[in-house]
Each structure stands twice: as C-alpha cells, then as structure tokens.
Design a protein around this nucleic acid. Structure first.
Length: 642
DNA sequence: ATAGGGATAGTT
DNA sequence: AACTATCCCTAT
C-alpha cells in the first residue's frame, strides 16, 4: 500500500490538519499510518470550519509536532523538510527494530502518542507547555481558564497491575464489524527505548503506565491479546446492555430526579448566578444580563388579536412547528416575534389562546365536514382541554384541541389558504435564506382527501425523545468501540441504539460530552456526571458518580448568547442527563487504544472503576493531517476488498 | 457518512 | 423570555 505522495488529513470535530508528503518520500515511520488514523484515531473527517479555527489549530499542531526527542519521528509532520530530517535520523534503526522488536510495543504505545493530553502529563513533555499549545492557543476555552485545564491535569490513581482487566480492544469483534485487524507493522516505528522512556517517565500524577506493564505486554502473544480484548469488549457490552431495553422509558424519572435534586438545583442556581456575575463584572458596560433584560416589562409584548390570527393562518399554511416558515410569510404580520415566540404563543394554554383554539378548531371542523364523505373518521380531533395547547406538535395530525365552546365570533373566521401566496412549492429555505414560502416538505400530498392546508398543519418533525441513561451508556460504549462512527454505533445491534439515527447519537454525544466530541480528548473525572462545571475542586473521585444526589458540580448554564452551543460548550458544558457516567471513564474508541497493559476502566452501571481510568490518558488527541483521513478511507477500502 | 450549525420542543 | 436537548438540514 503506497501512500506516498498522498495528501493526508486528520480531521476531528472542529479541526483539521493537513500535511503533504512528497511522492519520493519513503519513510518507514509513515509507511502505514492508516490504521492509526482509521482504527485508532477515530478521527472524523469533518472539516474545521470556524473562521479562526483552521489556522489557529493548524499552528497549534504544527508546533506540537515539533516534539521532543522522545517522540517518534513520524509524528513530526509539519513540513516535508522537518519530516525528512527527523525521519532520516532514525529511520534505519527504527525500520529494523520496529518490526522485529518494537512492534509489540506499538499498541501500548499508540495511545500515548496519540493522546497528546497524555503526553502532556509527562514531565518531558513540558516543552509542549512552553509552546503556544498550552497557552491561549491550546484550545478555546470559554469557561474560566483554570477549570478544565486543571481538571485535566489532575493526578490519576496508580496503575493497578495485578487486577488489570483484559485489554480493552475487541479487535476481533470490531474487525468483524468494521475492518481488518490493525497491523502493527503499519504503525510508525518507535524506538523501544523511546517508548520505554515514554512510559517510564514519571508523570507528575504518578499515574503513568508502569513501563513494566508495557514491556510485559509487549511480549504477549498476539492471540492472547486478542482474546483479552474480545473478552473486554464483551464485558463492556454485556455490562449493562442486557437490561437496556427496559430502561428506554425511564427518562422521565431521570429527568425528574435530576431536576428535583436539591443539590442540583442549588448548584444550578449558583451557576446561573455566577454566570450572571461574570457577565456583569466583565461587561460592565453591557446591558443587563439576559435574565434581567429578558424579564423586563418593556420586553413583554402582548399578542394582539391580529397577530394571533396571523399565527393561526401561518400554522394552517405552513404547519405546526414550522415557526420560522410561518414567521417568514409576508402576508402575516408579527410584531417582531421570533419563531420561538410563535411557538410559545401557540403552546400557550392560557385563556388568551382560546380564540386561537376556537378558530383553528373551527377550521378543522369545517375541513372535516367538507371531507367527511370521502374520508370519514380520518380526522380525529382530541377533545379540548382548557389547559392544553391548541395543538399537539407531535401528535401526528396537528391535533388542534377542540373547544367545547362554539367558535368565537369576535374573531374573523379563519380562511385557510389553500394556496400559498406565491403558489410555488418551495424547498425548505436555508437558515440564511428564509423564504416566505412554506416548505413543500411540510405540505405533503393530502392523505385521505384531507385538504392540504389542514394536512400541512401536521408537524413532520419527529417527537422529541430524551435520551435515557441506558442509551447514554450504550452510546458511550459505542463510542468506545466505534469512535465517531455514529452510523456504526447505531447499527451495532449489541448497543440497542437502532431506534436512534446516527446523527442523533452524534448530537447526543456532542451535547453530553462536548469536550470529548470537540477535542477528541479525555474528559475530567466528573464530566459525565456533571460535565458542566466550574468547580475547581478535585476531579477524580474514588467513587463512580451516580445519579443520586452525589452531584458535586452544577450543570453549566449556557448564556443565550452562546449561539453555537454545539461547539462552544467547552469547559462549561451542560450536563444533559445527569447520568451515572463518569467522563473519566469514557474511553477512546477501543480500536485505537489497545494498550494491553491498560486496564479498562470504562464502567457502566455504577461499578466504580475509579478515576484511575487509564483512558483518560488515552483518548485521542485532536491530531489531524489534512488528506490523511481520505487516504485512510481509500486504503481501508482496498484492504478490505483484497 | 459526518460535521457544523440552525430550528424547535419542552422546561425553567 | 431564557435555556437546553433534540431534531433537522446542508455542505463536504
């Protein structure tokens, strides 16, 4: 497999890094890094789109690759020259030693150099600290600068050699699912000495993997490793998945528990307060905090009857839930309402919306009457409840609540528009180009003879289904196994996540573990339980966080101004579900990290594995070389086809 | 297929 | 009205 001359790319959410290798370049260290990337790195191939992201991160990584001598030369990829120089220095030796002696060490090593965070723990990596990497350029931090970084630096418990569980790395299983077994031979050559040093270097936390472990493991037969990996993954999968099916409906309780948790609440309040204070203190000249400003009377604008009627018209035309489309209707006038405002208004169960309900109900009754001959009983309107919204967004057909009162005469009867203003079907407008036309998406063919306008009231949006603890656990396991390959996670029957879409899983992961998602890095010890934390306190706990009132950190409260929630939840990420997870237990995708010397600390279901999870040190670092990812994919395809 | 990011449901 | 989790769309 000749990758020379190809353009390599490493991508991860939020970043992309590239490097070009010359066609003539023949360097052993790089001869087959594909598996590293593909199998081990689990690097998504999305590009980093942020305006400042590419250059900034590129520079960061370029700086990073100017690694200390302990580093394998193959890591040094910033430039061709640098690469060549570095490679030539040890190429010969590495090439020979690598396969004969060092190869077995690669797997244990891989996580280490893959995970820059882990490397940063080692004193010798202090040179990195001097670089921009650890400065403001290291990563974007929204929260207090000390919070997350300190957490990440917290000591990890000593490695427990004896009780080391089987290596985490179901290659056999994974390979069966995804790809051929990684071949150590393709891994970049790393000198045994350097490896040993790497592991031997005492970390400041005294948590570095014992070199003896690595050494011992390096001698393990491949088959043994495989077996252990398989056992481990099976263990992992079997830990809690068996009873996940029964947990699919427990989210309500969970939510209740979380929200009613006094500690949680107090913490949340504190957090909010703190956030507000920060804002006011740092932005003295800024307007009132969103909270204050938002609640101010001047911002409270009563809905007029005209607005309400327009809202109804818009709903009839564009469908429930398509508030943006309704808002965009030129013939409908809203007093600078937002789509959210429309939604809230439509959801308002108060007396103020009775008229709206009446009107809509009237319209529906009319529709039903007109189509009764053709489609009897095709429309079933729920009985009106004075305390329920006049529609039920996810109840299939709009389901406007029927009022028992006769339609209000004060309001003009709603004349559902059977044709759009423009009369042209339109595709859903992009956010940046909201059109006045309602998306054809929402105007499906009138089923059962129901007039389109009424049909369109139906919301096509799937109903929200909060993630359950079981799902989260499965997702974590899936991530451990498949990395950022959400579709694989979704299709992995063992995980029972087939009812979710791959993108749903991605979204959930992004929300729940924003830091991991964004950085591909390890998470602080309690992020799982309360990823949103400014708590400067200890990260590592000797217990596994639980769903009970053991939360010691408040879920971060995002400010409204944080529009890019998905990628801006860094140190103050929100704790989505207060699940029984410990982010410290979140392993990187198994395929990468196959340090046989590692014990898998990923534990779900409340089995404390302790904060000593070696995975904290082995999560992927946001390393990316542009082009590499693509080549890896191609390589994989070739390999599998042969 | 995935990342990024907008839209929206539901809650506070 | 603010806020978050989930859903959705689009570009790559």
């Amino acid at each position: 497999m000749n990758k020379h001359g190809s353009r390599w790319r490493f991508t991860a959410p939020g970043r992309i890094f590239t490097s070009r290798t010359s066609p003539s370049l023949r360097i052993a260290p790089l001869r087959e890094p594909y598996h590293l990337v593909r199998s081990a790195f689990h690097i998504p191939r999305a590009k980093y789109k942020r305006k400042q992201g590419i250059q900034q991160h590129l520079q960061i990584h370029l700086d990073r690759w100017k690694c200390p001598p302990q580093f394998p030369e193959w890591i040094d990829l910033p430039t061709m020259t640098e690469f060549l120089n570095a490679a030539r220095t040890e190429k010969a030796k590495s090439a020979t030693e690598f396969q004969s002696n060092v190869e077995p060490l690669l797997k244990p090593i891989l996580p280490a150099f893959v995970n820059l965070r882990a490397l940063e723990r080692f004193p010798f990596s202090s040179s990195f600290d001097d670089g921009p990497l650890h400065g403001t350029r290291k990563r974007r931090r929204l929260g207090p600068p000390e919070s997350l970084s300190e957490h990440l630096q917290l000591p990890i418990p000593p490695v427990r050699k004896e009780q080391r569980p089987p290596p985490f790395g179901p290659f056999a299983i994974l390979n069966g699912l995804n790809e051929p077994p990684p071949n150590a031979a393709i891994l970049p050559p790393i000198e045994a000495g350097s490896i040993s040093q790497l592991w031997t270097k005492p970390s400041r936390e005294d948590a570095a993997v014992d070199p003896a472990i690595v050494s011992a493991n390096s001698t393990l037969a491949e088959s043994q490793s495989m077996e252990r990996r398989e056992a481990r993954i099976e263990e992992l999968l079997g830990a809690t998945l068996d009873d996940h099916n029964s947990d699919l409906h427990d989210y309500e309780d969970e939510r209740m528990t979380a929200s009613e948790n006094p500690i949680n609440k107090s913490l949340i309040s504190d957090e909010k307060e703190r956030t507000t204070n920060d804002i006011t203190s740092t932005l003295a000249s800024e307007p009132l905090s969103p909270k204050t400003r938002g609640r101010s009377r001047k911002n409270l604008r009563k809905w007029t009857e005209e607005e309400t009627n327009d809202l109804l018209r818009g709903v009839v035309k564009c469908g429930i839930g398509n508030w943006t489309a309704v808002l965009a209707q030129p013939e409908l006038n809203f007093n600078k309402r937002t789509a959210s405002n429309l939604k809230d208004r439509a959801s308002d169960p108060n007396e103020a919306t009775k008229q709206l309900r009446d009107n809509l109900a009237s319209a529906f009754l009319k529709s039903q009457a007109e189509t009764s001959d053709e489609t009897p009983s095709t429309i079933r309107l729920p009985l009106h409840s004075p305390t329920t919204p006049w529609f039920e967004p996810n109840s299939g057909l709009g389901s406007p609540a029927l009022s028992t009162r006769k339609p209000s005469t004060s309001a003009p009867p709603i004349k559902p528009e059977t044709e759009s203003v423009n009369g042209n079907p339109a595709t859903r407008q992009s956010p940046s180009a909201k059109g006045a036309e309602c998306s054809s998406k929402y105007q499906t063919n009138p089923p059962l003879g129901i007039p389109e306008p009424y049909v369109s009231i139906k919301s096509k949006r799937r109903s929200r289904r909060p993630f359950t603890t079981a799902e989260d656990e499965a997702l974590l396991k899936g991530y451990a196994i498949h990395g950022f390959q959400w579709t694989l996670i979704q299709q992995d029957k063992r995980l029972n996540l087939s009812h979710r879409r791959g993108t749903d899983l991605r979204d959930r992961f992004r929300t729940k573990f924003p830091t991991v998602y964004r950085d591909g890095s390890s998470v602080d010890g309690n992020a799982m339980n309360s990823p949103a934390t400014h708590d400067p306190g200890p990260i590592f706990r000797d217990r596994l966080p639980s769903t009970e009132s053991t939360h010691t950190k408040a879920p971060m409260v995002h400010r409204r101004s944080d529009t890019h929630v998905h990628t801006r939840q860094s140190s103050n990420a929100t704790n989505a579900g207060a699940g029984p997870f410990d982010p410290s237990l979140l392993p990187p995708p198994q395929r990468f990290v196959e340090p046989s010397g590692y014990r898998l600390s990923l534990s779900f279901g409340g089995q404390p594995t302790g904060p000593s999870s070696p995975w904290e040190d082995n999560t992927l670092a946001p390393m990316m070389w542009d082009g590499l990812g693509n080549n890896i994919r191609r390589l994989k395809t070739k390999t599998e086809s042969h």
